[in-house]
């Protein structure tokens, strides 16, 4: 279905939107729901799509981003530059790696914890609150704390030494090979609460009868979890996979605040690279180009994931 007719309607006075368009039954217009979604559409088109269009235009410029400075048009040179930019490809690779790991770990912990919390546990509400509080805190709030924890003299090294793993202590943020896992750890710390809450919610939808039936059939706890509960939470997993991918592509706060994308671009993501290019590198046009690439990737990734999960749903 094309968007053109709907778009045309958008510009008219609101009361005109419901005019029957011939194809519809005499009772109902195909457009009858439009006024209901109109406020959201206006908000999103006006404030998100306009900026996207603007970025598309800016991506053809050589411009420092200051409104009073005159830009020069350079066509697709920024795009050519992007495809040859090792930092860009590096950031992409980091994103993929980061997404696969954080998503798996979050799903595992979130799912397990949700199952545990649905069992009879003392202090359950307190535990749930503790896991969810990181979601609520601004990343900027916790960044200095994590920098300290993973420092040479930080609590993590102290913990390692006190359990006899002193040989493993090191400044964790100083080496790209250890800084990236730290970034992932912080991300998992921050977002598992959300994963947990969603699984917890999905599990409370399951009817006790099914679980009971499984138990009568002699299935153990883990068997039940794996073959009954997990498949029934597939919708949640699929949605989290899409949200996680989008989140991974947008990753900005944590690497920016904790490692500044370093050392040596070792924790560089598209988000940090775009911000750095724009704010410190003063190449707004190039930053816009990277932003457009990010949007394309995010939309494509989201659609692909959505299609693949809905296909597996049907099977």
């Amino acid at each position: 279905m094309s968007t053109a007719p709907a778009h045309e309607t958008l510009g008219r006075p609101v009361n005109a939107t419901g005019r029957p368009r011939g194809r519809s039954s005499p009772l109902g217009s195909r457009l009858s729901g439009l006024p209901w979604i109109l406020p959201a559409i206006v908000l999103v088109i006006g404030l998100i799509y306009f900026p996207i269009g603007y970025l598309g235009y800016a991506s053809t410029l050589n411009w420092n981003g200051f409104i009073l400075s005159t830009p020069t048009s350079i066509g697709d040179a920024n795009y050519a530059k992007m495809f040859g930019d090792p930092v860009f490809w590096n950031a992409l690779w980091h994103t993929v790696f980061f997404y696969v790991i954080t998503f798996s770990v979050q799903t595992f912990i979130g799912f397990t914890f949700a199952a545990v919390m649905h069992s009879r546990i003392r202090l359950g509400n307190l535990y749930k609150a503790i896991v969810f509080v990181p979601v609520v805190l601004a990343p900027a709030t916790m960044a200095p704390v994590f920098r300290q924890i993973f420092d040479q003299f930080g609590q993590f090294n102290w913990l390692l030494s006190s359990i006899g793993l002193g040989s493993l202590t090191r400044p964790w943020l100083a080496d790209p090979t250890t800084a990236m896992p730290v970034i992932m750890f912080i991300t998992v710390w921050e977002w598992t609460g959300l994963t947990f809450v969603l699984y917890y919610a999905a599990m409370s939808q399951l009817s006790p009868e099914i679980l009971e039936a499984a138990r009568v059939d002699g299935a153990g706890n883990f068997r039940t979890l794996r073959s009954i509960v997990w498949p029934m939470c597939r919708g949640t997993t699929a949605a989290l996979a899409v949200l996680g991918l989008i989140g991974a592509l947008k990753t900005f706060d944590i690497p920016y605040l904790v490692t500044h994308g370093g050392p040596n671009h070792g924790t560089e993501f598209l988000g940090t690279y775009i911000y750095y290019t724009m704010a410190q590198g003063k190449h707004f046009g190039y930053a816009a180009t990277l932003a457009i690439a990010l949007l394309v990737l995010a939309v494509a990734g989201g659609v692909l994931l959505r299609i693949s999960t809905s296909r597996s749903d049907k099977e």
Binding site: I41, V44, L243, F252, Y275, A287
Partner: peptide
């Protein structure tokens, strides 16, 4: 179209 807006990072707009 609305969902796609989820992908837009705040910093770039």
């Amino acid at each position: 179209a609305i969902l796609a807006a989820l992908t837009v990072p705040e910093a770039v707009i």
